[in-house]
Simulated assay, not measured.
Amino acid sequence: MELTQATVTDLLARLGPGDGYMYLSSALDPEGLSVRLDSRYGAARTLVLDGFTDPTVDESKGAALLLPFGDRAVTIRAWAYGDRWVGAGTALDAEGTERPVLVVAHREVPEPPVAAPREDGDVDWMERLLRITGWALPAQRPDVDWAEVESRLGTPLPSDYRRMVETFGEGAFDGFLALNQEPWTSHRQDGLLIWAGTEHENLYCWRTEGDDPDRWPVVIRSFDGEDIPFDCQAAEFVCRVLTEPDHPFTMADYFDTHWFMSYAEID
């Protein structure tokens, strides 16, 4: 079987919109299937490796993908995609032969709570973002040397942005809004630092006004050069575009549930 993205799309369509699984031809390369799914959904989490299940696997990490195979799973990797888990790898069939498998299951993402104020009266938008995306992994880049980055840039950076990078690492919200691991400076002459972007070539920036970076407003530099200001900071902006259908840059029209597509390898 020639393994192309069209082939993968066809296989997923055969599984349907609900929970389902299938054993595939032994001639299919399971690693090739994983590579195709990586390019579509981002880095996978390994649930089972060489027959041993990660003991931390639960519903928030794709445990539903393992149910069809019982103790017959050999290697299973999981991808989060909106309200769906996608899994692939190998498992023993009824005759005890190890074969490639593809499996899908419903992904439950908790409803984000109303943004509650902190003790100082401000909203913790990063905490809300964790709930919106259903993020349950450990911090991906907890040891970023921000002193070195800020010294090189010549400016301190907003604290919510630093928390986003430390928590999520390299990747994109809903596989679309890509988080820069440090700000881009290509529009610094315009007073802008770029903290994220999209495939539509919109740049998500801060207007670097004043000495307090936690008060820098978000500005969208559109693909045609227009600057669109927003009176909020980065984490709040991401929360709003994910959940508010009326937001001018909304992503809520495309997905009912949201996730962060990690580009890093997740063990």
Rank of each mutant, 00 (worst) to 15 (best):
L153Y: 03
A147C: 08
S151T: 08
A147G: 14
F176P: 07
E170H: 12
W146K: 03
L179E: 01
L153P: 12
P156R: 08
G169Q: 00
D160P: 10
F173L: 07
W146E: 10
M164R: 01
A136S: 15
E150Q: 14
A139H: 07
M164A: 06
E170I: 10
R152P: 04
A178V: 14
N180L: 15
F176C: 05
F168V: 11
P156L: 11
T167M: 01
A172K: 12
R163M: 15
W146C: 09
R162C: 08
W135M: 01
P142R: 09
F176Y: 12
Q140V: 05
L157V: 02
L157M: 08
A178F: 14
G169H: 02
R163I: 08
E166G: 04
P138W: 02
S151A: 07
G175L: 09
R141C: 06
P158Y: 06
Q181L: 12
F168Y: 03
A178C: 13
L179K: 10
P142H: 03
S159L: 05
P156Q: 08
F173I: 02
R163L: 14
G171S: 06
E150Y: 14
S151L: 11
T167H: 00
L179A: 01
P158V: 03
M164L: 12
L153R: 13
R163F: 00
A147V: 11
S159D: 10
R163T: 03
L177S: 05
L137E: 02
S151F: 12
L153S: 06
F173M: 03
W135G: 03
T155L: 15
Q181F: 09
V165G: 06
F173T: 04
P142L: 12
E148S: 15
S159H: 05
P156A: 11
E150I: 05
V149L: 08
G154K: 12
Y161P: 01
L137S: 00
F176H: 13
D160H: 01
